[in-house]
């Protein structure tokens, strides 16, 4: 037990050091190279302004969004008991987009708070609908569910696109295009990404309950848990995280899918023990992607969602293939035995 304990501590130390290193790097990189943390601390007024109003909020946004999406992904996977579920593969993101588009079309440009509220309501309703349908269908092959979810998301996107064409005169098309670009360089402020910290705290508080529902409804009921209520709580948290990160930084594809899968292979699924590691892991991944996007054509920067899509897509394909191939392999073994 003690050996394992130290192994866990080591892993945590490594991810911690990586995290701190990347946070510092992220704060130091920018088009004005003489503006760094040190300059800001020394009291250079210009440096302080850039630091407080641009660099720091950006890094905080990266960390919160990444940690949030990782937790959201893990919760969805626990609720659906499917390792391939996430806000990207269940249409949640697209529902959030539709939710932010509607007030824009009918009431004009809205504040981030209104957008987040609409995005949240749509994300929640859509996730409830999708999980209900999936449960009804009783699909055995786990890999079909993300594929179905992507099609479902595609349908919602198609609806949004059609709406934006219909209301092109108010600039809906440009709006839709803009919100679908994941970026940490948005002109707006990152204030509403702070909302993510609320569901994150909730997720930590209820960590054990979420792990238990991951073992199934009967298992949870045996331990005296109100299964439906905990599932509902998890889905509300997921929708809140998805909506607020979507409005603040746009879609960050694959994070909710690959980070929980990678992190749990290191730390296991007992959320009470591993949720902080999971958040750090997600943050490290996105910080890395963000730094890469800012460096490839310095001093300009690429959209972070492009980098994440490239890296995340490859990792996702690996998991998908392993899920399919691994599944077949296991089945073949079973028939032999």
């Amino acid at each position: 037990m003690t050996k394992r304990f130290f192994a866990r501590q080591w892993k945590r130390m490594i991810i911690m050091s990586l995290f701190i290193l990347l946070v510092v790097l992220s704060l130091e990189i920018g088009s004005m190279s003489d503006i760094g943390m040190m300059a800001a601390i020394r009291g250079d007024e210009n440096a302080r302004l850039v630091f407080v109003h641009s660099r720091l909020p950006r890094t905080i946004a990266v960390v919160l969004a990444a940690a949030g999406l990782s937790v959201a992904g893990l919760l969805m996977q626990a609720v659906s008991r499917n390792k391939f579920m996430s806000s990207t593969t269940a249409g949640t993101i697209d529902a959030a987009a539709l939710g932010s588009l509607l007030p824009f079309i009918f009431f004009g440009q809205q504040s981030g708070w209104v957008q987040t509220l609409f995005a949240f309501v749509f994300a929640l309703l859509s996730t409830l609908l999708f999980t209900a349908v999936i449960n009804r269908l009783k699909i055995r092959e786990v890999v079909y569910i993300p594929l179905l979810g992507m099609m479902y998301g595609g349908l919602i996107l198609a609806l949004s696109t059609a709406l934006s064409f219909r209301f092109a005169e108010v600039g809906a098309m440009e709006f839709l295009q803009q919100i679908y670009l994941g970026s940490f360089a948005r002109l707006g402020d990152f204030r509403f990404v702070w909302i993510v910290s609320i569901p994150l705290v909730l997720a930590v508080v209820f960590a054990t309950k979420f792990s238990i529902i991951g073992l199934g409804a009967d298992f949870a009921k045996n331990l005296g848990l109100n299964y439906n209520r905990v599932v509902m709580l998890a889905l509300v948290i997921v929708a809140l995280i998805s909506a607020s990160t979507f409005v603040a930084v746009g879609p960050l594809p694959f994070i909710g899918l690959i980070i929980p899968n990678m992190a749990t292979s290191f730390y296991g699924d007992n959320l009470k023990k591993s949720i902080v590691d999971l958040m750090l892991f997600g943050a490290v991944f996105v910080l890395l992607c963000d730094i890469v996007s800012r460096l490839v054509m310095f001093p300009f920067e690429m959209n972070v969602s492009v980098t994440i899509s490239v890296v995340g897509g490859v990792v996702f394909m690996m998991y998908l293939l392993r899920g399919m191939y691994g599944g077949k392999l296991r089945r073949r073994k079973a028939t032999v035995a």
């Binding site: 996977q77 626990a78 008991r81 499917n82 390792k83 792990s211 991951g214 073992l215 199934g216 298992f219 749990t264 292979s265 296991g268 699924d269 007992n270």
Partner: peptide, 9 residues
């Protein structure tokens, strides 16, 4: 017999 979807010890 329980079918497991999560990794715990």
């Amino acid at each position: 017999s329980q079918q497991l979807a999560i990794r715990i010890t």
